[in-house]
């Protein structure tokens, strides 16, 4: 048996989490719930994204973003968190980097806050419970 290049596959597809050059998109996951952090990370890494950092509140999220910058392509940001909420963190991240791509993650019932975040410059939003297909769809819309 030779290398697999001898058998071109018609099904091969680049994972959605990788850019045209094959490099993984880098994400910072900000959420105070260990469960949600794990869920988002699993969904994204399964599609080839690279989770380069996680944070448990908005302040830590802001600090991690500054630390990682410019090696971070987008952020998933919970809204309700201790110390600094997701809206304030979004605002500060955009002050630091007006090109930042931040995707809000919210439970149903926070429509007003989601609207506010979108008006302030968040790229998109995801509603919990998280659905794999929807998460990937929203993320890809936001980074392309």
């Amino acid at each position: 048996m030779k290398t697999k290049t001898d058998f071109p596959s018609i099904n091969e597809r680049k994972p959605d989490g990788q850019g045209d050059g094959g490099q993984a998109y880098k994400v910072l996951v900000v959420d105070d719930s260990m469960f949600v952090k794990k869920q988002i990370s699993q969904i994204l890494t399964s599609e080839g994204f690279e989770v380069v950092g996680t944070a448990g509140d908005g302040l830590e999220g802001l600090e991690k973003y500054k630390e990682l910058y410019p090696d971070v392509d987008f952020v998933t940001m919970d809204i309700t968190m201790p110390k600094m909420d997701g809206i304030s963190s979004l605002e500060k991240i955009l002050e630091f980097d007006k090109e930042a791509k931040v995707i809000m993650v919210s439970a149903l019932g926070k429509q007003d806050l989601v609207k506010k975040a979108l008006m302030m410059g968040a790229k998109n939003y995801i509603v919990k419970p998280l659905d794999r297909v929807k998460v990937l769809e929203r993320v890809l819309q936001s980074i392309k």
Binding site: V36, A107, L108, G109
Partner: peptide, 20 residues
């Protein structure tokens, strides 16, 4: 901790929707 965070999140999602 993960199990507790999961049940917490479940309660969070339900109450957030009920509150609306």
């Amino acid at each position: 901790d993960l199990g507790k965070a999961t049940i917490t999140e479940l309660a969070n999602m339900i109450t957030a929707q009920a509150v609306t």
